[in-house]
Nucleic acid binder design. Structure first.
Length: 851
RNA sequence: GCCGGGGUGGCGAAACUGGCAGACGCACAGGACUUAAAAUCCUGAGUUCCGCAAGGAACGUGUGGGUUCGAUUCCCACCCCCGGCACCA
């Protein structure tokens, strides 16, 4: 009797996998490919079990598909740029690169000790010039296509630290580090024109059949398409020039006869002019400034009260030709639509609230069916369907018809047009930071913005030794970096000193894995043609929007640049749930993290992997429990014991196929094949890893029960329990061998080390991948007899056992003659009998009518 | 407010196409083994009630209704929890 010592076994197999390059793969057109990917990791220091759950899920998939004969690409890498490294540099006086690379080394060790089957030779880290060079390459391509452009935009600014703050660094309106109230600054910033793909990104969501509904919905909301119209309201007493028009965006052009006033956002371009032309420009601007500052801080903490003031100006409603006042309102957004709206208080909740507050008129132009609303007495805006009134020649139309007709009418008269508006904005990628990809642009006094030519890439990050966290872009303090000749004319120019948002790095890394060392292109298109798209992608739901939209965007840019011929990079997406402890997400600050290495030391990596997969479905949050992990460990010990007991007697066993088996042997064999089909389907396509483990547990229980049945009171763990009863009967040895072989292969994606060890002990030389996924034999799995429940008036009253394949009449007869059912039928009239698919008998009875 | 996902034993959960609710595990209880304990192997267990017992009855998947021979599953209304978006005109 030997005991299960996971640590020894695990080290042995991890070493062998590495020596044999077991998970390294190459393009092989003769085999079907499977690209399995987990979202790569930010190297924050230590991975806890919450992080690694995701890698375990992916590993089950990768190992299963490998055994099923696929050429499996399962790579890993590091999202290695980012602010924490810079903060650590400021705090600990280490260089961000050292901090990052040290963390990578530690975390890589953690993952290797978990036995995740990564192709480590393809490892990438985004902070290395070999990688970020291609960020720069793509950026220049985007610049050439007008997809990357520069404009002024506001950033959060801390006066004390003299630095830009990311949104996450602004806590309740003050700097996270020093508590100074945050102000804004206008800087030249780079944007990527994701809006050019808004429509495509939205529509293609419909093709993502294997994405969670939740993520699709979130992306739909984020892109935020709305159909409406732009309508021009000429300024009263102005000229006919376009500068004398306020253009509004509305989704309710049908209510335009009720547009009692027009509202401008505080950021609207006309505001400055109206102020200048007003009697008291200073007071005017002060009120506007008040609104603008509200946006930054007050809006984060809660709903701000609707406020506004009359500019004194009037515009002409192009449908009614009546002059209406123009107000400036704090709740109108400057960066959506045209920054101006027509207010229809009778039919818009916000406009209604505003009109009532300031005593503005309310004109009803849509009447709901069977009611007559009056503007003066209206209690709330009515935004439902109805019939137009007070709307000139459009009166009497239904809302939907009016929208169509009036949009066309506006277009005919040149006063407006139908349009589609998106909520999504262009992606601001400039970061005034050190630890990121330098933006490869040089500003030349003559040529303007000039991209760095390919031959000069990468633009390397200069080595900086002092990190203070103060000042604007750290790169601006390195003259030898900043001063660069214009690539076009050679005159002294100035290099862009901002770095890229790290989301750029992660928007295409999955293609780099296909060809990670390419020195002439981001990747060989042929490699991506073979491996792409990612077949199975898993990661945290926190990336449901940004990362997954940016990746879909970049994938299309690569397509349009000509490097890939697919649109969608991820065929199937799984968003894994987090691991909680004491009801909270694991975090260092809460002190509730579980380090996988501690668990490996106690129970082994296999037990940890199995537990995390068994405790709940992959998408669900789970609460960590030590006792659950212990239970999984016990289960593995139980497997070890039965295998250790049986293996000596199985060396001569052959396949049970074709043997004349007794009832118990046939039952065990049936069980084995049922387990094969259940586990197979539970992993793929169902991805119910917890029930796959349950099925394996039942299978093990069944093997024990089989042994107990032949040998009541059997002690599997006793010394010298040489199982002669197995060897003596070839059929018994054969079914037990088959049961054990199947168990070991089926559990190998979950507990690969234990499985390889047992597989070897079972006498196989080539490992579980070479063995392949166990074959399912439907004939062996077929039941010989089936138990059929019998219901009387919907209540379970008995069960009958009939031979498989019995006719409905036979099943019916058996049900009626069953002793447990008969009493319920006595003195009753049979009203109806249902036998759906021969699976169940449902009898409906009622009392016999008295003659 | 809008959108999405949920609500099943003491706990994590299962039930794949409308068909035996609670598989599997944790915790718990009992038995075997042991001088004893641990470990192991076996057994039990939704709740309530009746019965010495074998066993039996009723109730039971958030609440209330509906469809159906039959509903955790489908339909309607509502309550609660989680997540996302949120003055997007």
């Amino acid at each position: 009797m030997s005991d299960y010592h996971p640590q020894e076994i695990e080290q042995k197999w991890q070493r062998r996998w590495q020596e044999s390059r077991a998970f390294e793969v190459e393009v092989d057109a003769s085999k079907p490919k499977f690209y399995c990917l987990e979202m790569f990791a930010y190297p924050s220091g230590h991975a806890h079990v919450g992080h690694v759950r995701n890698y375990m899920i992916g590993d089950i998939m990768a190992r299963t598909m490998r055994m099923r004969g696929f050429n499996v690409l399962h790579p890993f890498g590091w999202d290695a740029f980012g602010l924490p490294a810079e903060n650590a540099a400021i705090k600990n006086r280490t260089h961000p690169e050292k901090w990052t690379l040290d963390n990578i080394a530690h975390m890589k060790g953690q993952l290797q000790r978990l036995g995740i089957s990564y192709a480590w030779e393809r490892e990438i880290a985004t902070c290395l010039p070999e990688y970020y060079r291609w960020n720069q390459w793509l950026f220049t391509r985007m610049f050439d296509r007008g997809l990357a452009y520069r404009r002024r935009s506001t950033v959060n600014w801390c006066e004390t630290d003299q630095t830009v703050l990311a949104n996450e660094q602004v806590v309740d309106g003050v700097c996270w580090r020093c508590g100074t109230p945050v102000t804004t600054r206008n800087l030249e910033q780079w944007f990527l024109r994701i809006t050019a793909y808004a429509d495509e990104l939205l529509h293609a969501l419909g093709d993502l059949k294997e994405w969670p509904e939740k993520v699709l919905t979130m992306q739909r909301n984020w892109i935020g398409r709305s159909e409406g119209a732009r309508v021009k309201f000429p300024i009263a007493n102005g000229t006919t020039a376009t500068s004398d028009v306020i253009e509004v965006f509305t989704t309710r052009i049908d209510t335009i006869y009720g547009a009692n006033f027009v509202l401008l956002a505080p950021e609207h371009p006309l505001v400055e002019r109206f102020a200048a032309e007003s009697p008291d420009p200073a007071a005017f601007l002060a009120r506007v400034a008040g609104f603008r500052s509200q946006d930054r801080t007050a809006r984060l903490t809660g709903e701000i009260e609707k406020e506004g003031f009359d500019t004194g100006r009037r515009v002409i409603n192009p449908f009614t030709h009546a002059p209406v006042p123009v107000w400036i309102a704090n709740f109108v957004l400057g960066d959506y639509g045209t920054g101006a709206v027509m207010a229809v208080p009778a039919h818009d909740e916000r406009d209604f609230e505003f009109a009532r507050k300031y005593g503005l008129p309310v004109t009803v132009v849509v009447q709901p069916d069977g009611q007559t609303l009056e503007g003066e007495t209206l209690a709330a805006a009515f935004d439902g369907d109805g019939t137009l009134v007070n709307s000139g020649s459009f009166a009497g139309l239904r809302v939907a018809d009016a929208r169509r007709t009036m949009t066309a009418e506006a277009a005919t008269h040149g006063i407006g047009e139908g349009t589609v508006q998106y909520r999504i904005k262009d992606w601001g990628v400039s970061r005034q930071r050190y630890w990121g990809t330098p933006i490869p642009i040089i500003q030349c006094p003559d040529c303007g913005l000039v991209p760095v030519p390919d031959k000069d890439l990468p633009v390397r990050l200069p080595h900086i030794t002092e990190f203070t966290g103060r000042g604007d872009s750290p790169l601006a303090q390195v003259p030898e970096f900043v001063n660069a000749p214009c690539p076009r004319c050679g005159k002294p120019g100035r290099r862009e000193t901002d770095t890229m948002d790290t989301f750029v790095d992660s928007s295409w890394y999955f293609y780099r894995f296909c060809d990670p060392t390419n020195e002439s292109l981001p990747f060989d298109p042929a490699a991506v043609k073979y491996w792409g798209p990612v077949d199975f992608y898993s990661g945290g739901v926190e990336h449901a929007i940004l990362h997954l939209i940016y990746s879909r965007f970049f994938s299309r840019v690569f397509r349009d640049v000509g490097l890939v011929d697919i649109d969608e990079p991820f065929t199937r997406l799984l968003t894994q749930g987090m691991v909680l402890r004491h009801g909270a997400v694991m975090s260092k600050s809460k002190g509730n993290v579980v380090d996988p290495d501690d668990m490996i030391a106690k129970f082994g990596a296999d037990a940890l992997r199995l537990y995390v997969m068994f405790v709940a479905p992959p998408e669900k949050e789970v609460e960590w429990t030590d006792s659950g992990l212990e239970g999984s460990f016990r289960f593995l010990c139980r497997i070890w014991r039965i295998a250790d007991y049986l293996i000596p007697a199985l060396s001569g066993a052959s396949s049970p196929a074709g043997m004349l088996l007794d009832d118990d042997e046939r039952a065990l064999r049936r069980r084995t094949h049922r387990t094969i089909t259940r586990v197979t389907g539970d992993i793929d396509p169902r991805m119910h890893l917890n029930t796959a483990v349950s099925a394996l547990m039942e299978h093990v229980n069944e093997i024990y029960a089989f042994c107990q049945k032949s040998n009541p009171g059997l002690r599997v763990d006793e010394e010298g329990g040489a199982p002669g009863w197995v060897e003596d009967r070839a059929e018994t040895a054969a079914v037990l061998r088959e049961a054990l072989d199947a168990l070991v292969l089926l559990i190998s994606p979950f507990t690969p080390h234990l499985a390889e060890e047992l597989w070897e002990r079972l006498g196989h030389d080539d490992g579980v991948v070479a063995a392949g996924w166990p074959a399912f034999d439907p004939a062996a799995a077929a039941e010989e007899s089936i138990e059929i429940p019998v219901q009387v008036n919907g209540k379970l009253r008995g069960r009958v056992t009939v031979p498989a394949g019995s006719s409905e009449d036979e099943i019916r007869a058996a049900a009626f003659s069953a002793s447990s059912v008969a009493p319920y039928l006595a003195d009753m009239e049979i009203a109806k009998v249902v036998v759906p698919n021969g699976r169940l008998v449902s009898i409906v009875v009622r009392p016999k009518k008295q003659p």
